[in-house]
């Protein structure tokens, strides 16, 4: 990449660490991991270093959405499963992934089991669509609806789960980034706007993050309803799909007691490497 291109980008160092602790040993632990940022129009990844322990056999693949996966099986009994991914990302603030074939993204126009609309969201949808100004562009609409979603629930951890639907979160009035994203997706798709769920990381320290990308007809534009802002060069994309299920970071299947504790720590910071 040229010097000029490099100047337009933000350089971010990232670390993604996940640790699964099993109180009793488990074995024949099959896993599929989807936590590896890949190159796209908006980001270039370098110095990627991936470590998965304990030792395992398996392979890598690209799933149907284009996400990178590593899968495998740990045969021997173990009480800990660790994944660490770190590297550097060059992120363009104003570049978006273009949509080449508009007729191929139809799947993002329909709600899934997790984003299905119920009476509570239907009410919100009616309210929002009643207030639609004439000739509102898709991105303007997404911005306006994002704001409504942001204020319709409160950010509270531990109330919702990975299987909580958009409607359920709206009824609770509480949730985390996954729930904000599902609610916005539910509303946009009710309006037939193609929109997808994105898992990624943003600057700071904490967990992984989730947001929404909307197709404005030509490209995918990112909206973060949890923080009520547009996605910029502080965000690194990991995967996308129709909902959180398509983007499951760690899918596991093992023999032993189902009890487990998951620890996730994500750090993204401005790169000092120059």
């Amino acid at each position: 990449m040229t010097k000029r291109e490099e100047q337009k980008m933000r350089k971010l160092d990232f670390q993604y660490h996940m640790r699964l602790l099993f109180p009793e040993p488990v074995n024949r632990h099959h896993f599929t991991l989807r936590c590896f940022p890949i190159d796209s129009e908006r980001q270039k990844i370098t110095n990627l270093n991936i470590q998965i322990t304990p030792s395992h056999v398996g392979g890598t693949e690209t799933d149907s959405f284009g996400n990178r996966c590593i899968y495998g099986v740990v045969e021997k009994p173990h009480t800990e499963f660790c994944v660490s991914v770190d590297g550097m990302a060059y992120v363009y603030g104003d570049a978006f992934q273009p949509v080449a074939d508009a007729h191929k993204i139809g799947m993002f126009r329909y709600n899934t089991d997790l984003t299905k609309i119920g009476p509570t969201l239907d009410k919100l949808y009616k309210k929002l669509s009643a207030g639609t100004p004439e000739k509102e562009a898709i991105t303007e609409k997404a911005l306006r609806w994002m704001e409504a979603v942001h204020s319709c629930i409160k950010y509270v951890q531990g109330i919702t789960q990975v299987t909580t639907t958009a409607e359920e979160a709206a009824v609770f009035g509480m949730g985390v980034c996954q729930d904000y994203a599902h609610i916005l997706l539910a509303l946009l798709r009710k309006e037939h706007i193609p929109s997808r769920y994105v898992v990624g990381m943003m600057t700071g320290e904490g967990a992984s993050h989730a947001w929404v990308e909307v197709c404005d007809g030509k490209k995918w534009v990112g909206f973060d309803p949890t923080n009520n802002c547009m996605v910029d060069d502080q965000y690194i994309c990991i995967s996308h799909g129709r909902d959180a299920r398509d983007c499951t970071i760690n899918q596991g299947y093992f023999y032993g007691s189902p009890r487990q504790i998951q620890e996730i720590n994500v750090v993204v910071e401005e790169s000092r490497d120059d």
Partner: peptide, 18 residues
């Protein structure tokens, strides 16, 4: 019409591109 494809229970996104 695409709704008959994507709204049907038989469509599996995992099969895209396979």
């Amino acid at each position: 019409p695409e709704e008959f494809v994507y709204m049907g229970s038989g469509y599996l996104a995992q099969c895209e591109g396979v």
